[in-house]
Design a protein around this nucleic acid. Sequence first.
DNA 1: CGCGATACTGTCAGCGCTGACAGAATATCG
DNA 2: CGATATTCTGTCAGCGCTGACAGTATCGCG
Lengths: 328, 328
Amino acid sequence: MGLVELAKIAGVSVSTASRALSNHPRVARGTRERIVALAQEHGFRLNQTASALRKQRTGVIGVVVPLGHEVDQALSDPFFMGLLGGLADALTKRGYDLFLSRVVPQGPRWLDDIIASGRVDGIILIGQSDQLEAIERIAGSYQRMVVWGAARLGSNQITVGTDNVTGGELAARHLIARGCKKLAFLGNPEAPEFSDRHKGFHAAIAEAEGVTDMVVPIHLTMEDAYREMTAYLAANPAPDGILAASDVIAMSAMRALAERGLRVPEDVAVIGYDDILLAGYTTPALTTIRQDVVYGANLLVELLLARIAGQNVGSVAMLPELIVRDSA
Amino acid sequence: MGLVELAKIAGVSVSTASRALSNHPRVARGTRERIVALAQEHGFRLNQTASALRKQRTGVIGVVVPLGHEVDQALSDPFFMGLLGGLADALTKRGYDLFLSRVVPQGPRWLDDIIASGRVDGIILIGQSDQLEAIERIAGSYQRMVVWGAARLGSNQITVGTDNVTGGELAARHLIARGCKKLAFLGNPEAPEFSDRHKGFHAAIAEAEGVTDMVVPIHLTMEDAYREMTAYLAANPAPDGILAASDVIAMSAMRALAERGLRVPEDVAVIGYDDILLAGYTTPALTTIRQDVVYGANLLVELLLARIAGQNVGSVAMLPELIVRDSA
DNA sequence: CGCGATACTGTCAGCGCTGACAGAATATCG
DNA sequence: CGATATTCTGTCAGCGCTGACAGTATCGCG
């Protein structure tokens, strides 16, 4: 049933029916109520596709997850999920719907496809993966996009994220204060966020006396991380302090450590990153750098809607917080 | 830039341009290649909204999560996330996009809104929550929907899920075989899936000698579950065997047990449900009833597309599998 | 060379809705 | 009572695209 029919039933023109349903002020109250009641009765709803075409506005925001360097990750990563949940809430509250897109970037045009399709009013990109340049290129001309990830000076991207460098520093200081001498960063510094975390980690260590520092490149999924950490421990002496690039990596590492007979935190202190919901439920409970996903999600939505409204906004780096539990 | 412009540049009619871009066979090869090249060059993409309106087909599937009884849950629940990831993959593979909708059902019409909006070609409903009747009503007349959840005899819903009754039985048998005498089911039997799990659990216990059985209603989020379990243990003697309605509940329960000085599995054997990725990474590693989310997601998509194509399909109950690890 | 078959390409209506504009009905006032 | 303002309703074009239908060009063949 279309608007035409509804209008016919109500004995008014389509235009009046349309106005009644969208609460336009220039329609008599009685008329509006009658039409709304009829719509209800006949189960009529406006066709959003037609409305979107006409209004050139879809009411949909695309949440896009590029999977450049970690194809399996993302949608099963608890941190990402928390963010997605927050986004779903924040968008719903603002009257927007959510279009979810995981993209394995092939060629440089993966973002253009989504933008030019006309399906969304704006884009929230989650994580920069290894696509910093492709994103940057788009960000130069396309305003209606915000990005969760690492901020870069002089970038066109409006980003929301924690200050990853500071996060890395916090972790290093804490491990050093505990007396750790042989530190390791677990993660793949190809992703800008991880690279920043490592940068801060490394910088703080460089200032300390007699503390060494290394990087163990490790993937983001549970299984990969566990396997790689196990392999690493079999071939190398264990560090006595660890900053994992994510809580998931930290948990996998703790398992690998436990199976090798190493105690956490006595033999090896472990710090994670994210503070996912599960972090408090591991044994030992995970010490970690907290990122507030709910706040971050709200911020992303707020900034995006401001940009869509044509306002100028700036990137936001939230302060990370060290949550001390039992693992370090 | 619209199709009209592109056609003008190419020196052909819009119709020919449209056909060229959608690989219609009735366009000369040279013409097609030229138009495709021009489109590429000018960054032209078809407007999906207009195309959808015209074709009466959006290429979008709605993934809808009703949050009737557990408002906070769902999007942060690892099991759900796994399923969502699988759905995203399966849909992408079939050329569909994914529209994500969390709904807190208010009034009986929450599903109609999504259907009649014309935004999606079909719906995958995740979990029945406490909305069995509302869903049933829709399922009677709307064919393009499939549901993850519990199957019910004589229902109009096409469901995919594990055989929850059998899952509950498996768990009970395993606990009884271990010598547990005082069993508890942790979870809220209001959700049909949980109710089935409990039914099987209870039935298997009823057949055993001298084994008791009780239900502790517990919510699905980490924090709630932990809090409620702690409160329960403070007020009641502990059971010696537990089936939790989900792995998340099981993990929270294990934490509460540990803090009360109860050892798992020596004092209390714990079995979870789902086999989320993290299940193997808890201490002790969680024994659980496995649900294959990736297979389930593929099945959901396959059945939905078959229904959209007008075929008749039936519900599927997958066999659950007991994964024995350390917690029971 | 003419005729039909074949291979393309163009014309045009309309998917369902919205909003600018115009028109009708009613109220206000000198 | 007529003029003007005010309030409501209707008409109609068109958002960008697709596909039925019609049209044109080319080819084969008697």
